[in-house]
Simulated scan of single mutants.
Amino acid sequence: MTSAERTLPELDWSTAAATGVRLVRPGPRVDATHATKAVADLYQYAEQAQGLVRDTARIEAPTDTAPVRVVDRTAWLRCNVESLSGLLPVSERTTATGHITGAQIGAVLAWLSTKVLGQFDLFAPAEVAPGGRLLLVVPNIVAAENELGVDPADFRLWVCVHEETHRVQFTAYPWLRDYLRDHARIVAELTDVGAPGWQDLSRLISTRGGERLTLLDLLPDTVDVRSTIERVTAVMSVLEGHADVVMDRVGPRVIRSVGQIRRRFETRRDGRPGLDRLVRRLLGMDVKLAQYRDGATFCRHAINTVGIDGLNRVFESPETLPTLAELHEPALWVDRMGRTS
């Protein structure tokens, strides 16, 4: 299929927003004093994280091109609908398929709005945030620190360091944003959201029984899609692993309980039971957890072999990104970079 023959999927984003807002669950009950302090802390720690990440990652990035926003769940959902609708524009005609798909996307975003601690929104509209925007979801951060039983100040700074690392990645190397946007559009253009699996996910889950299923299974099995998914998987693994490594390298000198936070957070990542685990599997979030681990392993190997500045070569261009094979065997990437020095 040529690019001229591709058509973007029909999506009714107003339905997605309305459905999502209706389904968003309220956050933890916190009195006004504690809520105000949590918001103030996150703005303060987001600013503090800038220097910590710059010194730890050894990457210089502008500080005024991607604003920080501390948001609640509904605001996070609205931001993502705004960004996704720019990435995948609405069809000129409203159809039943568009309504149904929009409602399903809204339901997915409502569920995610209760899980995401922070996000660098790289697809934010240019007129709103030309360099992207950093979103910190305050009710989820408060809920997580309560659930984990960790020091709130340490945990809030730890989260901010992770998300600031993503802000630095995309503002220091703007090509990354265009690279991921282009690849996301390729997949979207090759995907038929009118296919039966997209219209009745519950039926598809029941017919697949105990087999592993994610939304990736609903994408067409073509060479274009497979190669695109492989490239996106590799780059996202590096980005997530790099952020995890940086947040841990900041270390107990700054975040006293970083070891405890990491141990408890990893247990929390893995320990979701029942329906929550099913939804996470459907959305491919177990794939995302693997990205954190594979990417972190890759980054640690590179740092141990060629140092932090050697690892930073990964962000120079699409050609210096690891392939999926190199991600799983970092020595191959290190060898290739040595041959091109």
Rank of each mutant, 00 (worst) to 15 (best):
T2I: 05
T2P: 13
S3P: 07
E5P: 01
T7S: 15
L11M: 13
T15C: 12
A16K: 05
A17M: 10
A18V: 01
G20I: 00
V21H: 00
R22M: 03
V24K: 00
V24E: 00
R25V: 00
P26E: 12
R29D: 15
D31W: 07
D31Y: 07
A32S: 14
T33D: 11
H34T: 01
K37Y: 08
L42C: 05
L42F: 04
Q44H: 11
Q44S: 12
A46Q: 04
Q50S: 06
R54A: 10
D55E: 14
A57N: 04
I59G: 06
V70R: 10
D72N: 13
C79Q: 07
C79D: 14
S83W: 04
S85R: 15
G86I: 01
P89C: 10
P89D: 12
A103Y: 02
L112C: 06
S113M: 01
G118R: 06
Q119W: 12
Q119E: 14
Q119F: 11
Q119I: 00
F120M: 05
D121R: 02
D121N: 15
P125M: 08
A126G: 08
V128M: 12
V128G: 03
R133Q: 15
L134F: 01
L135K: 04
L136Q: 02
V137G: 02
V138R: 10
I141H: 08
A143V: 00
A143Q: 10
E145V: 02
E147I: 01
V150S: 15
A153R: 13
F155N: 11
V159R: 03
V161S: 03
V161G: 03
H162W: 02
E163V: 00
E163G: 08
E164P: 00
R167I: 05
Q169S: 06
F170P: 02
T171H: 07
A172D: 10
A172Q: 10
D182Y: 00
A184M: 14
I186T: 12
L190R: 14
T191N: 03
V193F: 14
P196C: 09
W198N: 02
W198M: 07
Q199L: 15
L201V: 15
E211S: 15
R212T: 11
L213P: 07
L215H: 04
L216N: 11
L219W: 10
V223G: 03
D224R: 12
V225D: 11
V225S: 08
I229L: 15
E230D: 15
R231I: 00
M236C: 11
S237Q: 08
H242L: 09
V245W: 14
V245M: 09
V246P: 07
R249V: 00
V250K: 04
G251D: 13
P252R: 13
R253Y: 01
V258A: 15
G259M: 03
E266T: 10
R269N: 07
R272D: 08
P273R: 06
G274C: 06
V279A: 13
R280D: 14
M285C: 02
D286T: 03
D286M: 06
V287R: 13
K288L: 07
Q291R: 12
Y292G: 10
G295K: 08
A296E: 15
F298D: 09
F298T: 04
C299P: 13
C299E: 04
I303D: 11
T305N: 14
L311M: 13
N312P: 11
V314E: 09
F315C: 06
L324F: 04
A325Y: 02
M337N: 01
M337H: 01
G338I: 01
G338A: 09
T340I: 05
S341I: 03
